[in-house]
Design a protein around this nucleic acid. Sequence first.
DNA 1: AGCGATTTGTCCGTATGTATT
DNA 2: TAATACATACGGACAAATCGC
Lengths: 241, 241
Amino acid sequence: MTTKAVNLARVMTQEIETGRYPVGDRIPTEAELQQRFDVSRHTVREALRELKTRGLIFARAGIGTVVRAKAPDSSFMHGAGTLEEVIQFGEATRMQVLETRSVIVDQALAERLAAREGLEMIRLSLLRHRPRESVPAGWVVIYLRPEFGDVVSRVEAAREPVLRLVERQHGVRIAEVVQKIVAVNLTAAQARTLKSSAGKAALHVTRQYLDPEDRLLMATDALYPSDRFSHNTRFRIQQEH
Amino acid sequence: MTTKAVNLARVMTQEIETGRYPVGDRIPTEAELQQRFDVSRHTVREALRELKTRGLIFARAGIGTVVRAKAPDSSFMHGAGTLEEVIQFGEATRMQVLETRSVIVDQALAERLAAREGLEMIRLSLLRHRPRESVPAGWVVIYLRPEFGDVVSRVEAAREPVLRLVERQHGVRIAEVVQKIVAVNLTAAQARTLKSSAGKAALHVTRQYLDPEDRLLMATDALYPSDRFSHNTRFRIQQEH
DNA sequence: AGCGATTTGTCCGTATGTATT
DNA sequence: TAATACATACGGACAAATCGC
């Protein structure tokens, strides 16, 4: 069973899509729609509200209701899920630093990190451990801008993500995260480090953290064997007025 | 001048944030709020609708209205292109339907889809093909509510995601997507279907698409061999305004 | 299994305010 | 100023879902 409002919204959507009401034109007034579909004004408004939140129309008192777009515009599909979930490297994990050193970005690394070649960066290699588990949950390599080097000494003790340390310590703000996930089979060397077995499937997650000017602040390169990690995200769509 | 509904929404948001109504608890009924704020039920519902679309609460007839989450504080992601990338099953891929049938959700499936046991759903199994490539890019199983069955016949011809077909045809709106990604080694049977090889790493992506009332509209279960797919996301953090 | 009581969902009618022409 | 059209708000009625007895 579909409601009258949903049905009306569907009809109006279709008529906008098929060009009966072209972009820029006004659709019939609420009173007219009320008559045409033999419903209350409340129901008409309910249907139009739906189209508004989908970005198909907009309304102005005194003017009417105007078609804004034929198809739902992607800019109206704002994902308002938490970035926290992306950033949070798990509260319940302990970080074990394997190695810290300075590297010059070569061509291969430049590609992987979307960073400029020749740039100097701090390379922090560490294992994530869950409490009471002998095998590491994952292997994370963090690339940091040299000026953020002072946080390195606090990584193991801190109970929060490296990103948070950098943000607080240096007053920078992350504006964007670019994430790429692929599946890989572990090499023998990787398997040794992770105390897993060669050939086993793993998630390979690379991330770039950018500031508002699109400059790379930090990048990570992580490897999570299949049975120890799942990557969960919750996207919520925020409608606007 | 702020409207009564906006004001009420603000008060309720704050009370949820400050913990007066903890996550999981019910907020007062519409009738109670109506009395407390001395407004009509219409106004109460208008305010609650706002909180619903923000994902703070969800409501069920017969039960009440439950707090789903505290308001995202400062950093939550925003911006075009976020959810689109999740939803868009690639325009440039062709869908080949392998099988369509009706299934009753058993215990195992209930867990995987976060659906109720005993529910009837349509199971649509298909392969994604990229143009000019002989091997499939991925294997997708879609679970649809029975009332959406009419879109099945149009999946192969349509050049858009099944989700879009459902949204347009039935006037429903996705409010939330829950996504889980794990790495797996392909079984022999899976490898055969995908024209890949057993043991090869693959991304296993499961998603639940929920409407504003938290009801499951559609769920997908996809398998992408490692060398044919990478999952890219771009999170943009909303700046204060 | 059934039957109220409760609570949200849908739908209707009406009145008044506000913005635009 | 008057007419138009959406915005806000009030009221009531019944349906649908759920819970407890």
